[in-house]
C-alpha cells in the first residue's frame, strides 16, 4: 500500500528525518512512536504531501509523491496535530466546503455528512462556530474532515494530545472502528495509546527508525537483553558475583544494595537473546545458598522505548 524509501528531510543544516525505509500493508494500524522532535510529524507531513522530501521517495499504490502528489492526496485523509481548522466557520459549512473540494456533491454529499456526523458524534454541534468548540470536539470535526472522502489511508498526527481521558477513549474507539477497514497511520508519544490501538509500532529516534514490529515482537525481541533479579540468603556478595559471572549466557552481574542483613541481591544481565535462568539455577543448586528470589524483569514497551530513545 505505502512504500517509503530513503526518505530524508533537512531543515537547513538540521536533519529531521534520516533515510527512513518503511513498508505499510493495507489494513494495518501503524503507530509512529518517538520522543518529541524525533521526526514523527515531519515524516507524516511528507507522506501527506505538505512537505517536499529532501531526498527519497514515497509511493502510495502506484503513485509517487514526486510525480503525482495530487493523486496521493486524494487517497489520504489527514488530521494534523491539534486540528487547525478554519476558526470562523460553522461546523456544517466547513465540512460542506471540504466535501465539495473532495469532489462530493448533492445527495451523496448530504448522505456522507450525515454518516460522519453520526460516526464522529457531531449531531449536536453542526450549527456551532468552530472556535467555540472544545478541543475534543474540534478533534472530532478534524476526524470528520480527514474521513470525508472515505479515504483508504488515514493519517493522524497525535490524535489524542491535549484531550481528557474520556475524550481519549472516545477518539481511540473511533480510530479502532475505522482501522477495521482502513490503513491508519498515527503518531503519538503516549505508549499506552500505541499499545492499545496499533497492530504495529514503529519507533523513531533522531530521524531514524530504531524498532519496528508488533508490541509482542518488540517486547520479546530476539536481541533484547533479559535482566534477572536474584536474592540469596547465607551468601556473600563477592561469592555470588564470582560464581554467577562464570555462568554461560550471563554477560554482567551487578550487586544491589543490601536491604536486610543476611540477604544478598544481585541483578544479572543476560546475553542478547539468551534466557540464562536455567543455567543460573543449576549453578546455584551446587552451592548451599538459599535462593529466595528469582525474577525476570518484564520487558514492556516503555522499557524498550526508553532503552532505544535514551540520550547516550
Amino acid at each position: 500500500m505505502i512504500h517509503v524509501e530513503g526518505l530524508t528531510k533537512y531543515y537547513d543544516e538540521f536533519c529531521a528525518v534520516d533515510h527512513i525505509d518503511l513498508d505499510i500493508k493495507g489494513g494495518e494500524i501503524v503507530g509512529l512512536l518517538g520522543p518529541n522532535g524525533a521526526g514523527k510529524t515531519t515524516t507524516l507531513r511528507m507522506l501527506t504531501g505538505y512537505f517536499q522530501p529532501s531526498a527519497g521517495d514515497i509511493r502510495v499504490k502506484e503513485h509517487s509523491i514526486h510525480q503525482d502528489s495530487l493523486a496521493i492526496k486524494r487517497l489520504i485523509g489527514y488530521l494534523p496535530e491539534s486540528a487547525p481548522l478554519y476558526k470562523g466557520m460553522l461546523v456544517y459549512d466547513y465540512l460542506e466546503h471540504v466535501a465539495r473540494i473532495r469532489g462530493l456533491d448533492g445527495a451523496a454529499m448530504a448522505q456522507r455528512l450525515f454518516e460522519l456526523a453520526d460516526m464522529c458524534g457531531l449531531r449536536g454541534i453542526m450549527h456551532k462556530t468552530i472556535d467555540t468548540l472544545s478541543k475534543g470536539l474540534k478533534q472530532r470535526v478534524g476526524l470528520a474532515h480527514a474521513m470525508m472522502s472515505d479515504p483508504e489511508i488515514l493519517v493522524l498526527d497525535e490524535p489524542t494530545s491535549g484531550l481528557d481521558p474520556n475524550q481519549i477513549v472516545e477518539i481511540r474507539e473511533i480510530i479502532r472502528k475505522i482501522g477495521e477497514q482502513k490503513t491508519v497511520i498515527l503518531s503519538t508519544h503516549i505508549l499506552s495509546e500505541a499499545e492499545a490501538t496499533c497492530d504495529r509500532i514503529v519507533i523513531i529516534n533522531k530521524g531514524r527508525i530504531v524498532a519496528d514490529g508488533s508490541t509482542q515482537e518488540l517486547t520479546s525481541g530476539k536481541d533484547r537483553q533479559g535482566r534477572v533479579q536474584l536474592g540469596f540468603m547465607g551468601a556473600s556478595t563477592e561469592a555470588v558475583v564470582d560464581r554467577l559471572k562464570g555462568v554461560p549466557g550471563v554477560s554482567a552481574v551487578t550487586p544491589q544494595t543490601e536491604e536486610a542483613p543476611g540477604l544478598t541481591r544481585v541483578q544479572v544481565l543476560c546475553q542478547p537473546g539468551v534466557d540464562a535462568r536455567p543455567e543460573i539455577y543449576q549453578a546455584v543448586k551446587a552451592t548451599d545458598w538459599v535462593l529466595v528470589e528469582m525474577n525476570q524483569e518484564a520487558q514492556t514497551l516503555e522499557t524498550i522505548f526508553r532503552e532505544l530513545t535514551r540520550e547516550s
Binding site: Y50, P80, L85, R102
Partner: peptide
Amino acid sequence: GSYELLLTLP
C-alpha cells in the same frame, strides 16, 4: 495552521 489542511486536500 489551516494552511497544512488546505495543502493536503487534493
